[in-house]
Design a protein around this nucleic acid. Sequence first.
DNA 1: AAATCGGCATAGAAAATCTATGGTGAAGTG
DNA 2: CACTTCACCATAGATTTTCTATGCCGATTT
Lengths: 290, 290
Amino acid sequence: MSIQPPRPRGPSLNALRAFEASARLGGFTAAAEELNVTPGAVAQQIKNLEDWLGEPLFQRTSQGVRLTALGEATAGRFSDAFDQLGEAVGHLRARASTAQISVAALPSLAQCWLMPRLPALRRALPDLVISVTALEKPPNLIREAFDVSLFFSEAAPGADEIRIAEDRIYPVCAPEVAASVSSVDDLTQVPCLRDGHWQADWQVWLRRAMPDRPIAVTGPQYSLYSMALDAARSGGGVLMGHDSLVAPLIERGELVRLFDLTVPTGRWLTLRTTRPVHPALKRFIDLLAS
Amino acid sequence: MSIQPPRPRGPSLNALRAFEASARLGGFTAAAEELNVTPGAVAQQIKNLEDWLGEPLFQRTSQGVRLTALGEATAGRFSDAFDQLGEAVGHLRARASTAQISVAALPSLAQCWLMPRLPALRRALPDLVISVTALEKPPNLIREAFDVSLFFSEAAPGADEIRIAEDRIYPVCAPEVAASVSSVDDLTQVPCLRDGHWQADWQVWLRRAMPDRPIAVTGPQYSLYSMALDAARSGGGVLMGHDSLVAPLIERGELVRLFDLTVPTGRWLTLRTTRPVHPALKRFIDLLAS
DNA sequence: AAATCGGCATAGAAAATCTATGGTGAAGTG
DNA sequence: CACTTCACCATAGATTTTCTATGCCGATTT
């Protein structure tokens, strides 16, 4: 008979992950979002870890948290370790023959760019299960179980990134609305539709259209670009169109361009992938980027 | 309002750890021991991981498990990642000012070697909380929350190991028993106490004492060396004494040596530590090794 | 002054994880 | 040849961990 008493328990792996994410992202709330839990859950995990350690890792202030010296000194090691773990999981998935791909995309891109392409993709890759998740902000592909992300990015493309198209904007509206807008000044007389996340679009375009005489436009705001797009299609006003998203509608005659001024926003529609890329994913990406 | 749907869930960290341990130790049972859970729990974790992956990682045979090609190809990455994670936790503990030390030791060493030294150690390091866990086999110091381990080892000492003493054996008994044993042959007439884990001790010693004429001794067996030692002290028979464990009792006259033959077992009492070593631990080790 | 943004604490709910149990086939043992 | 042992499986129920929900606080912004 052998002695089998309780061994000293280490910290929970989830607590370590919560610490790492909070340290890297600079707050419990951001970490909670990445980990897909509530901020309270992260706060608790970190408290557990601090209790186990007997020492605080974050210094709480009323407007957020800051790493203590101890936290600062060790956070990097945890990030490295979890990077490596994420990479190992990536290899596992890449070598497994499971034909599963999950895409993270900006809601507008998911709906207006990806969805129209999905039927053809599914037809070309019938053995592939493709799932799409709409996210406001690009996920950390090393940590989360996404294979591909599709967002607008200003940065120069990295090694695992492909620039698909430049983001260019111009006003668009339904054909029957176009008649009532003959000059830029007329825009003040019609509803100028806006997307909540791209509030600045109109200003960006107007600054170029009327550099000397600033004008202000107003109109309803939609939380999703696709909703604003629907509104524009049904004659609800003028929308600041993003070329990648409205071009097919213009081609089909559902929308028409107003004026000829196209303004680049300085961002690019960027597809980012995890490494390593398994064969099915490679084919998927090649089709998307072509 | 933003879209916050379920993100694709990755595998649980605990499942990954169970996989890593099982792959490294070559079985669910061994992994369960290290992780301090039942084998069934490990089997379930691994099944979860395989279900998530859609592919088996182990090939089950009736006498154990073997890694599949996929498991073989990725297990190493997970070991590296968890090594790094363990190291990060080690740094965390090392920099924290918590004066907590936990020692893993062979039951016999814990009771007969460490316990007698503990009072002095606690007196010398009063601000240190020292806990001791008896284990049959040395724990993996990178993975588990031990600071120091104390076992007999045949291998040449590594970088984080200190050889404290050579393991040498010789028969001992209570003074009143010594009178009835004047030659090695007399050993067949008295109970020869044995420890369950050191069954071979008598054979090792007798092979040297009587190289030409092998004799067999018999006697009760105890699961713990300290029990056999108590039996010997109270006159229950002759015990094969390990020098490090019985020397103090001989000095105090509670036991006497029989014959003059001391046989080295080829093993060494070895103290192993984690790196990095924090200051309190350093002082502890220095005291133990001196 | 009100709204917003992190963060905290707590209780109860949900989910993950573990144990316990009985069963299998293969290998070793008397 | 039966008998034991060993490692693993499956399942159900218990336990522990983790999460959500809620109300609260203090600082910044409007």
